[in-house]
Design a protein around this nucleic acid. Structure first.
Length: 501
RNA sequence: GGCGCAUUCGUCUAGCGGCCUAGGACACUGCCCUCUCAAGGCAGAGAUCACCGGUUCGAAUCCGGUAUGCGCUACCA
């Protein structure tokens, strides 16, 4: 039981749920599942100035949506699961104070009375002298009694952890052995601010220790700071977890992926109509590979194959185009009913925002679904592809009615000649789709042949008149869905436009 | 500046000493299919495996150095 794998994802609610956080969460979950372990979610909200309840909610909802909900820890606003909590750092203050007091009592930490102005001055002086920034240790030798007296007299002081000299070795599961000289750590580390609140490097270690974390799987940006954590683990006298540092997700310019240069909020991808399956699939393959040539995989399939050995060491550029391709693959894999379920909110939202003139009924979405499933990279793409079905009047440039090889007069004659055939050939909208024998198409092809037109040109003129667009689902299915009355009205409108020119 | 990490087609990657005149996928180009757009099929172009040395009969794969990039370097997380 003691060698049970326990991993965690520790998001900080200082911004919306970030794609990088999702990726780290996924890898942790995958590792836990693969090894029969426990996956924990801990909220790191010690930076009260930047943390917010909305962001925490966004993160928790995002995790749930992606299927990355915690086995243990924070599962929803105000809801935690597990007996090694609390799992929100804001609720753990007494614990941090207790551990800090212990370090102080054992001489492993000391009060620092330096003001931020003094520290800034020190830092810029060293910078000017081309020296690496490093705390001088000026307060390290202040006698405990003196420090206590000054505190009692009302002075405020931060608490610093003594960085022990020596080389710290990280046995990283992804990168192998990494050695860092404690000399390069910037001097003694502040673990408690002057106001008593704890800092990240301290809380992360206390929490990982308290929660029995066995494997710390996180982004490579934390590698350089890992020695600080290792020293803290030693000071606490707890066993060291194993570390695995994942390659960074990169902007196109190969810098660490950021809100400034990339779309990073999971909620934005969700709103665009990316499927959770596609995001998971894509994220898993960013920095990890199956070792095979399989590309489209479900979480289950990924879980079965996951291992740290195939984790890439170099950073990976976030390629949205590839995500869209994977999304299209997944859209085509969904069952009819499933796709309908997922499309419904997009139509509802489009109607609410006035992007389509009226709400779409379920039967309508169901009917057009086979026409669009191969044509939408995103769920939201369905709207612009089918908005003509829900419009009262079409807005388009009359020039659209004239196919490239045609004159306006030809388009006019084409529509006029096609009209009576359509009157006879199109029912009132509830006719079954994709009739086996469709006389209308054959009749229109005959018409085109008689007139010496290319059938495609005639179809294009009709398409423009009926949909107001040049790229649409198949014409005859679209007309049938629209119904005779609307189709004729639109053709008449187009004929009027063409006559006016 | 210091420390650390990394480096295979534009991008994601396979590769773990001979199977590599480097494979797949996305994107790109062409063709096929086709009422448009997609989807799908086929074909093509695209990487002197960052560079320089070394080890070895043999290196993308092992070792050393160089370069470049990135990350970290807060009383942020």
């Amino acid at each position: 039981m003691t060698d049970q794998v326990r991993v965690r994802i520790a998001p900080s609610p200082t911004g919306p749920f970030h794609i990088g956080t999702a990726r780290t969460a996924l890898f942790n979950l995958l590792y836990a599942r693969r090894n029969g372990g426990t996956y924990i979610v801990r909220v790191e909200d010690t930076d009260t100035a930047r943390s917010s309840a909305e962001h925490e909610l966004d993160i928790l909802e995002g995790l749930r949506w992606l299927g990355l909900e915690a086995d243990e820890g924070v599962v929803a606003a105000g809801e935690e699961r597990g007996d090694r909590g609390p799992y929100r750092q804001s609720a753990r203050s007494p614990r941090y104070a207790e551990v800090a007091a212990d370090l102080l009592a054992r001489g492993l930490a000391y009060y620092c009375f330096c003001t931020s102005a003094e520290l800034d001055a020190e830092r810029s002086a060293r910078e000017k002298a081309k020296l690496p920034p490093r705390y001088s240790g000026r307060c390290a030798a202040i006698l405990v009694d003196d420090a206590a007296r000054r505190i009692a007299a009302g002075e405020s002081a931060a608490l610093r952890f003594r960085i022990k000299p020596g080389v710290v070795v990280i046995e990283d599961l992804v990168r192998g052995r990494v050695e860092i000289d404690a000399e390069a750590l910037g001097g003694d580390l502040v673990i408690l601010r002057a106001d008593g609140s704890p800092l990240y490097h301290f809380t992360v270690v206390v929490d990982d220790a308290d929660m029995g974390i066995t494997h710390v799987i996180r982004g490579e940006d934390h590698l350089s700071n890992t020695p600080k954590h290792i020293l803290l683990f030693h000071a606490l006298g707890v066993p060291l977890p194993k570390f695995a540092h994942l390659p960074l997700i990169l902007n196109p310019d190969r810098t660490k992926m950021s809100k400034r240069k990339s779309q990073t909020a999971i909620s934005d991808y969700r709103a665009e109509g990316f499927l959770k399956e596609a995001i998971i699939n894509f994220l898993a393959l960013l920095g990890w590979s199956t070792g095979s040539e399989d590309e489209i995989l479900s979480v289950g399939e990924i879980q079965e194959r996951f291992n740290l050995e195939h984790v890439q060491k170099a950073g990976a550029v976030f390629d949205r185009t590839r995500l869209e391709w994977i999304n299209g693959q997944w859209i085509r894999k969904l069952s009819h009913d499933d796709l309908l379920e997922r499309l419904r909110p997009f139509y509802a939202k489009a109607a609410a925002e006035g992007r389509i003139a009226r709400p779409a009924r379920d039967e309508e979405i169901a009917a057009l679904l086979p026409l669009i499933r191969e044509r939408i990279p995103l769920l939201s793409s369905a709207i612009e592809l089918t908005d003509f079905l829900f419009a009262e009047t079409l807005q388009y440039d009359p020039a659209l009615l004239v196919p490239k090889r045609w004159e306006a007069a030809t388009a006019l004659r084409g529509l006029e000649a096609a009209r009576p055939l359509i009157v006879a050939g199109i029912g009132e909208g509830d006719a079954p789709l994709l009739e086996a024998a469709d006389p209308l198409e054959a009749q229109l092809r005959e018409l085109a042949e008689r007139e010496g037109w290319k059938a495609g040109d005639l179809f294009m003129a009709l398409r423009a008149a009926v949909t107001g667009r040049t790229a649409t689902p198949p014409l005859f299915d679209s007309m049938r869905l629209l119904g005779r009355t609307a189709v004729l009205a639109r053709i008449d409108l187009a004929i009027g436009l063409l006559r006016a020119t």
